[in-house]
């Protein structure tokens, strides 16, 4: 399915997606953006869960989101 926006937590293993929106406290969102996790960033779920591991530009990043921080992603392609 193209154009479906889902929370990062629901992205299945091996699926690629594009970050669409990060919501939460302004300076926390800012930190993630500085880290490279921002609208438009392409990611791939490496290990789902909380914390999860995602692949981002060839690097792996471990991220724990909570009620205060939500990363929404848009599925890009169906092959994994």
């Amino acid at each position: 399915m193209v154009d479906a926006v889902i929370p990062l937590a629901l992205l299945p293993k091996g699926r690629r997606a594009c970050v669409s929106r990060i919501s939460g406290q302004a300076d926390h969102v800012h930190r993630l953006e500085e880290f490279g996790l921002r609208g438009g960033a392409r990611i791939e779920m490496f290990r789902p869960g909380n914390p999860c591991i995602i692949r981002m530009a060839g690097n792996k990043v471990c991220l724990r989101s909570d009620d205060l921080l939500q990363v929404m992603v848009r599925l890009t392609d169906t092959d994994s």
Binding site: L32, L37, P51, N59, V61, C62, R64, L69
Partner: peptide, 12 residues
């Protein structure tokens, strides 16, 4: 205090 998001890089 508010804990900043837990993000760490997994280096190669």
């Amino acid at each position: 205090g508010a804990t900043p998001p837990f993000v760490i890089e997994l280096p190669s």
